[in-house]
């Protein structure tokens, strides 16, 4: 029988959420520590590497968790739930941008913003590959991009991705397959083995 509470680092995400729901701030700190970085990266990849926007999205997502912890179904995996919320936020942002694009002068604001973002360029200045990769990612359509990012950037399993995107596993595999083939083709110029 274990009467002493395990440390927060040992607790599962779901157990932390239960504690957090009861007002345990240290549980919230642990959840934030686990997911804030990966989610920031995810938002950056999904939102045209706009760090400001990604920071805002991270803040909004955790604010939702604080205000409405009951939205999380304790029977589900927290990881898949939080990524599905993040993914929905990105989709809403895409829709918003589509509306703006229709009202704009035709310039693609995202690429101009992200490409001229000094911070982002500072992060990737030593890697042309990275730049090309990001361009390739942005040129993918949303459904392929999100599946690929969740699989290869966030390291989620096919099953988890199918739960997050609410599609069957076959479709997930198909989308990842397509995105992988596309990016590999786009980036083959950087491969020293092939270009030898």
């Amino acid at each position: 029988m274990r009467l002493i509470k395990p440390s927060y680092a040992e607790m599962s995400d779901e157990a932390l959420m239960r504690s957090m729901r009861n007002g345990d701030q240290r549980a919230f700190d642990e959840i934030y520590k686990r997911y804030s970085g990966p989610l920031l990266g995810y938002f950056m990849r999904m939102l045209w590497r706009d760090r400001e926007k990604a920071e805002d999205f991270v803040h909004d997502l955790f604010a939702k968790i604080i205000r409405k912890p009951d939205y999380f179904d304790m029977e589900r995996s927290f990881k898949t739930w939080i990524y599905s919320v993040a993914n929905n936020m990105c989709k809403n942002e895409y829709k918003k941008q589509e509306v703006r694009k229709g009202m704009s002068n035709g310039l693609d604001n995202h690429f101009s913003l992200s490409d001229t973002n000094v911070n982002v360029m500072g992060e990737v200045q030593d890697s042309f590959f990275r730049e090309a990769f990001e361009r390739g990612m942005q040129s993918l359509d949303e459904k392929h991009k999100e599946a690929f990012a969740l699989r290869h950037m966030e390291g989620l399993s096919i099953k988890e991705i199918s739960e997050i995107l609410d599609i069957n596993e076959g479709t997930v595999k198909s989308r990842i397959f397509y995105a992988t083939k596309y990016l590999a083709e786009e980036l083959k110029v950087f491969n020293p083995v092939i270009n030898r």
Binding site: S36, G37, G41, V58, F133, H152, N191
Partner: peptide
């Protein structure tokens, strides 16, 4: 095969390099 191998290895390196942390103000 080599294209895929290169892509996967580069993505792993990117992930290792890109350790992002949100700003302190957010927390």
């Amino acid at each position: 095969f080599e294209q895929m191998k290169f892509l996967f290895s580069q993505m792993e390196m990117m992930k290792d390099r890109e350790v992002l942390e949100p700003r302190a103000e957010t927390k």
